[in-house]
Design a binder for these strands. Sequence first.
RNA 1: GGGGAUGUGGCACAGCGGCAACUGCGGCGGACUGUAAAUCCGCUCCUUCGGGUUCCUUGGUUCGAGUCCAAGCAUCCCCA
Length: 378
Amino acid sequence: MSELFSYDIVAEDPKTHARAGVFHTAHGDIETPVFMPVGTKGTVKGLLPQVVEGLGAQIVLANTYHLSQRPGSDLIEELGGLHDFMQWHKPILTDSGGFQVFSHGEFFKLSNEGVRFRAVDYDGSWVSWTPEQNMAIAQQLGSDICMQLDQCPGYPATRGFVQRAVELSSMWAERCWKAHTRPDQALFGIVQGGMHLDLRLRSLRHLEECGDFPGYGIGGYSVGEDHETMFETLAPLAGEHMPRNKPHYLMGVGNPTTLVRGVACGVDMFDCVLPTRTARTGTAFSSEGRLNFRNARFRRDDGPIDAACTCPVCTGGFTRAYVHHLVRQHEMLGSELISMHNLYYLIDLMRRARASIIEGTYSDFVDDWMASPAAIDY
RNA sequence: GGGGAUGUGGCACAGCGGCAACUGCGGCGGACUGUAAAUCCGCUCCUUCGGGUUCCUUGGUUCGAGUCCAAGCAUCCCCA
């Protein structure tokens, strides 16, 4: 029942592909569907770990690439691993850094061995990675879930380019699978294939052939395509073709409406920088849609960020006028309060989705959501 | 009373003969999706979009003046 890295399906919605489950890791169980806050450099920006936990976060992300640059995986290993280093004792998922490499445009070179790229966000020096080296770093960090090294094509991209990315990612998946030995860490494969269902299925097939991955990432979405384009292939992929007994992790997504719809497609895990990044620039999710707290209309607004929200900020007496003031004055607390609110918003959304799936009423949940003002902006 | 300095768009500060006028702040709005992001991008004199009216004021020099000259007004500093 609670074997490490097993995924137990608790309930399935009768009318959609939504599932509620539990994924077991060395640092505790993860109840799905779940939203995972992003803490790239070993911190969810601006928030203490206990605050993140208090918001209901079950797992956070960190990034292999960034942490290998600074402060270095050797150092983190020496200091007892990433959990101790960042004082987060629940599960951690590390992304490989493949996304970073390929989102840096012209600053990378592929070879049979691996990838060579410039650490443009640090000192600009060239870094070489093989899938084996990438796994070695992830294992030093000691995350509970690590992602294979993959190639994430952008959008638009030619079919040929996407196909080559699938082939390379498949090859790397196999090498990652063979190189990965840490027993208390789960390695997830990543399905690529852009907006082509046949390539997606081919990618999935390759992964299933090369190893028994305990979970699957779905990469290469939310890279510039519109939402409907994504759902055209995501829905059949996650809903019908991906193995039922493994978690389906839609990487880098996203906004509240996409989460609600993604769950209906059979997605179990999400991560996104959107709640924390937009928070730092003054934008809050709300039941009224997105709110930009730099706007003058909040100057005298003595209500909470979202009257329908039960987060510590909205129930803590902090007014829109105060948040507006903090944001305008570039006070750190403004970023922090909205980050808390936004993270809670998505975490709680998934918690409510889960309850609804267990009740067997998720299709109503989706309908209600889509009819609400909260769905408008996305 | 004597000497020196300065007056530019909401504020601060550029500009040294071709200017609707640099830059910063402020103001208004937008973006943000496996974080190169407490960041980035617009707009910010009036306009019937042709143009119009500007750089303390008034004269003057010049094809042309925010920029040069004169006077006035105002402000600041130093010495009495």
